[in-house]
Computed example of a mutant assay.
Amino acid sequence: MVDFDRFQILQFFSLAGSDLTVQIPVWLSKLKNLEFLALDFNQITGPIPSWLGNLPRLSYIDLAHNRILGEFPKQLCRLPRLLYEPIASQAEDQYEFALPIFCNIITTNQIFRPQKLSSFPTMVGLSNNNISGYIPVEIGQLHLLCWLSLGYNNFSGVIPNQISN
């Protein structure tokens, strides 16, 4: 159903708050330029697919407030953009676009300011799901991670010391 050739340059993908009741679609794995993935506040089920860790440019992933099951995949701890600084030519943010800035306060005025993808913090947001098992020690490899949200899940074991890396 999706013509992947037309989506090859897609960098920003958000269906947050769309009441989706599916699993994370496999066709997203073909989006090698994807940097920003926001699927929070839906009813997404199933596990976090391990192929998310293979997306070379992904640096912002928000899957919070869903019904995701399974364990924290170690492959997420291998996201290249969270492990090391990109080469200057890859890091160049060529496109500027207007995105709505939302607040928790309901207002009639939405503010649209020019944004660049690099203005978003590096993030892994998995809170408010049904993720179980251990938090992998490999999480300490994500030296460029700015925001990690794992609350309100069913993790067991201890918080790994490596998380402070």
Rank of each mutant, 00 (worst) to 15 (best):
C103M: 08
F97Q: 09
Q90Y: 10
E138Y: 12
K74R: 11
D19M: 05
W51M: 03
V158C: 05
I68C: 00
K74V: 13
G140R: 12
I131M: 05
G46Y: 14
R6G: 14
T45C: 04
V137G: 11
Y95N: 10
L69H: 02
F102Y: 15
I135K: 06
H65R: 09
Q43A: 14
I131H: 01
C77M: 10
I131L: 14
Y134W: 06
A88N: 07
A91N: 13
H143G: 11
R78S: 15
E138V: 07
E35I: 02
F155T: 00
I159S: 14
E96K: 01
Q141H: 15
M123R: 12
I44E: 00
K32T: 15
L34P: 09
N153D: 13
P25A: 02
V158K: 09
T21R: 08
P25T: 02
F102W: 15
F12I: 06
I44A: 00
C146T: 13
P80Y: 14
E92M: 03
I61V: 13
C77Q: 08
D5A: 08
G140N: 12
P121T: 10
A38D: 09
E96L: 02
F155P: 01
L126V: 06
I159P: 13
C103A: 14
C146H: 15
E71V: 12
P47L: 00
K32L: 12
N33D: 10
P80L: 14
E138M: 12
T122Q: 01
L144W: 03
T107K: 11
V22P: 00
L28H: 03
L39K: 05
Q8N: 06
I163G: 02
Q110V: 13
F102E: 15
I163M: 08
Y152Q: 11
S119H: 02
S59Y: 04
T21M: 06
I111S: 14
T45I: 12
L55R: 04
S89Y: 15
D93Q: 04
L58Q: 05
N130D: 06
G133E: 07
A64M: 02
P86Q: 10
F36P: 00
I106Q: 03
T107R: 13
Q75L: 08
A38Y: 05
Q23W: 06
L52W: 01
T122E: 00
L145M: 04
R6N: 12
L142M: 08
S156V: 13
L144M: 07
S156H: 09
L31G: 14
N154S: 13
L79M: 15
N104G: 11
V124N: 02
Q11K: 12
G133Y: 06
L69F: 03
P114Y: 04
I9M: 04
G53D: 02
T21V: 11
L126C: 03
G133R: 07
G140L: 12
N129L: 07
I131Y: 02
S119G: 00
V22K: 03
P136M: 05
P73A: 06
L10T: 12
S59N: 09
N129F: 09
Q8T: 10
L34M: 11
F155Y: 07
I24F: 05
L142E: 05
L117T: 01
I135G: 04
S119W: 01
Q90P: 01
G46T: 09
F4P: 02
A88M: 04
N42W: 10
S149D: 15
T122S: 09
I106V: 06
F120K: 01
V26I: 11
Y95E: 09
Y152W: 07
A38C: 05
W147D: 08
S164W: 10
I61W: 02
S59Q: 08
L82E: 09
